[in-house]
Design a protein around this nucleic acid. Structure first.
Lengths: 109, 109
DNA sequence: TATGAATATTGTAATATTGCGATGAAATAA
DNA sequence: TTATTTCATCGCAATATTACAATATTCATA
């Protein structure tokens, strides 16, 4: 059906899925890495960096922002995007927790 | 087009995107959490745990396995799935690296 | 060998995603 | 005021994802 049965899962599971989904496209990985690299977060030189149409880049940015991976603030005429430390930290903690729980156990596969 | 222009990005970016994509659905988050919880990785009581059809669960398991998030080994008649520490570790490191790089910098948004 | 249990695969349908070009909107500069 | 720049949104087309039921496969066991 192409529609996820989100009501079958917890809010937390749905939120995590959405955050990981934001990182599930190479263009969005590239955007994150570019923001990281340029330090200054004056954006959309992104459009020149990434070989996609401006409208497509804009869409990817929106998805990243919806998921909370990046934040954006208006900077006169342009928009300033930067990474959201808090959300990235949550994701790291989530994966860390999983790793901590399995680290003691014997591998079975 | 619905098709990602993967050739525009590095292999690493594409691989990371695929791994995050494996975690980008609440059912797959739920599967990972269930495997984590039951410790023993004798699976597909998963089908009873997760309110989706057996074929759908099977498909999600395949995606997780393709991305390397879980490993599966044949255990007589049934299949034993468990989490793949190595790949989860890579993902944690990737996010950690990002966080390390931004931790010193001044927030701009 | 035949049956059953556990998965995987296939076919089909609905919906989502990806991408582009064109168009809007909003602030700045000329 | 009139460009120009910067971004968002809309409409469209192509492809991918999600889901289920039905069927196939694979192995163990009766």
């Amino acid at each position: 059906m192409g529609i996820s049965k989100t009501d079958c899962f917890t809010d937390r599971q749905n939120a995590l899925a959405q955050q990981f989904k934001a990182l599930s496209h190479p263009a969005r990985i590239a955007i994150v890495e570019h923001i990281l690299r340029v330090n200054s977060c004056i954006c959309s030189d992104l459009v020149e960096e990434i070989p996609l149409a401006q409208s497509t880049v804009s869409l990817h940015l929106r998805e990243l922002k919806n998921a909370g991976i990046i934040k954006g603030s208006i900077e006169g005429n342009s928009l300033c995007y930067c990474l959201n430390e808090a959300v990235l930290n949550e994701l790291r903690e989530y994966i860390s927790d999983i790793l901590n729980k399995i680290s003691g156990k014997t591998e079975c596969c």
